[in-house]
Design a protein around this nucleic acid. Structure first.
Lengths: 158, 158
DNA sequence: GCCTTTATATTGAAACTTCAACAAAGACTC
DNA sequence: GAGTCTTTGTTGAAGTTTCAATATAAAGGC
């Protein structure tokens, strides 16, 4: 007398410890980006997502990167990146170029103004990151947090 | 021969370990909300921020809460909450009531439909949270992550 | 080669969030 | 209790992100 249809699986709910941690994580997901955006907006006039694009480009030896790769590196979609680069282009911080080896491709590159702007904005931002995050963590916390986040990223980035 | 003006403080840059961890954190800040939003949008038609509002209300004994407190609990601003509650009201999941003790106040409360909706949406969401997060962490990771996030939240939530 | 499929990138409309401004009631001072 | 300051909550405009649709080029199958 068993039911042929698969029973609607009783979901495995979160344990107490998991729920506590999850509430902390989701709260952090809400407030940390907001805090980073606020500092950058007030002091430099852009969002954290846009700042990250500039920062990621400046880490490249030639200050430029293919759009799709840049999107993956910054954890965003090509759509979002396309809009963002348009905005950054209007500000004169980024330029689009055609890709030499792939005619579909576009390359986003930091302009001199972009480099200069980043040098101006970085110290204040780093100070805020310290104030909000690293000032409250021990070296071991930092290592552990690095390890734990490293475990989570693979599933989320494909 | 000292300069009277405060020297532009050389910022304390991030160490290698800090930078690695910070890149992981910011990547997570970008992709985890997106992943949560996608599952909830596809399966239930709302964002994670909106889902959290419903979930937070349902955790109250009477399924309702003052707007400001609800905003703090969900890690959002009153502005955002006001817009969000309006949207949830249109869907019939939340109702606004006047606050009995404070004539400025508004109370947001889950409707029966809101409760019913949440019961439908919760299992799929919990399953996704497991798949994305807790499936990859040991019990000790969960505890440690809870402790670390707990250290970070106070500065960020005032 | 030709056809289909996949990858790259953009666009415009809709949804959500942010910012600034505002309105209204409570709290505090004298 | 009148005046000031603070708290609570909303609104509308502007900016950002998402989704769906599109255009174009590369890659794969035959």
């Amino acid at each position: 007398m068993t039911d042929a249809r698969p029973a609607p699986a009783e979901p495995r709910w979160l344990t107490g410890a998991e729920m506590t941690t999850w509430l902390n994580i989701t709260q952090l997901l809400m407030v940390l980006p907001t805090a980073l955006d606020r500092q950058l907006r007030d002091d430099a006039g852009l969002t954290h997502a846009h700042y990250r694009i500039l920062a990621m480009l400046s880490a490249e030896s030639d200050g430029s990167m293919r759009m799709t790769r840049l999107a993956r590196k910054t954890g965003t979609t090509t759509t979002r990146l396309s809009h963002a680069v348009s905005a950054l282009e209007e500000r004169g911080w980024v330029e689009r170029r055609a890709c030499a080896t792939d005619k579909r491709g576009q390359v986003a590159g930091l302009t001199d103004e972009g480099h200069a702007f980043l040098r101006t904005a970085a110290p204040g931002h780093v100070a805020e990151v310290r104030r909000l995050v690293f000032d409250h963590l021990t070296d071991e916390d930092v290592t552990r947090l690095g390890e734990i986040t490293a475990k989570l990223l693979p599933v989320l980035t494909d």
